[in-house]
């Protein structure tokens, strides 16, 4: 049996911490895709899925936040039912119901939000980042999610881009509401950790 005789290269404490947080945020993103808040009448249930991308970017910065969302997508490709409606598979990420682009958008959105909020690879404490910057990061994340998701949808469904945008338009008020909720969370200081 081949054996390795180099000294053990332990993963640094800080890396372990960021990695563990990324793992749990990936699991949280997956869980938020399954658990929604039912709305009265015939309104679609209020999904909290984008919050996974928001939190990952704000708490972990561009690199580790990106890793969290990459893990989420990889686990789905590996076959765990982590996408909305318990879907899985590479096919769902690529085309799905035309919404695969939004999954990739979450990943890029987390990277952009993390980049704007932290402006460096290693995440800083959220206490040192102004609320205005965090809000800007969230808004940029939503813009990126739509900028990737809508053209992707138009490609997958063979629709003109304007038509795809019109299809997604009814969801925009909900996303504005989500931004409002996320901003309330940021302003309330709920994300600041010791």
């Amino acid at each position: 049996m081949a054996q390795q005789h180099d000294s053990v290269a332990l993963v640094g404490d800080e890396t372990v911490e960021h990695f563990a947080t990324a793992v749990l945020l990936a699991a949280l993103t997956a869980a938020l895709a399954q658990v929604s808040i039912p709305l009265p009448g015939s309104l679609p249930p209020f999904s909290l899925q984008p919050f996974g991308a928001f939190f990952a970017g704000l708490l972990l910065g561009p690199l580790w936040g990106g890793l969290a969302l990459a893990l989420y997508i990889l686990v789905g490709i590996a076959g765990a039912p982590v996408f909305s409606n318990a879907n899985a598979g590479l096919g769902y990420v690529l085309v799905g119901q035309g919404t695969g682009g939004f999954l990739v958008g979450f990943l890029l959105g987390a990277v952009v939000a993390g980049g704007i909020a932290h402006r460096q690879i290693t995440p800083r404490s959220l206490e040192t980042i102004g609320v205005a910057t965090q809000v800007l990061a969230l808004v940029a994340a939503v813009v990126v999610i739509y900028a990737v998701g809508v053209p992707w949808m138009s490609w997958a469904l063979g629709l003109p881009v304007q038509r795809a945008a019109a299809t997604m338009a009814p969801y925009a008020p909900f996303d504005l509401l989500k931004i409002a909720v996320a901003i309330a969370i940021v302003r309330g200081g709920y994300l600041v950790r010791e």
């Binding site: 990324a22 793992v23 749990l24 699991a27 399954q34 989420y72 990889l74 686990v75 590996a78």
Partner: peptide, 13 residues
């Protein structure tokens, strides 16, 4: 990470 996320997903749900 992939292995760990699969492990934690049901717990977080």
């Amino acid at each position: 990470g992939t292995g760990l996320v699969v492990r934690f997903f049901p717990l977080v749900v």
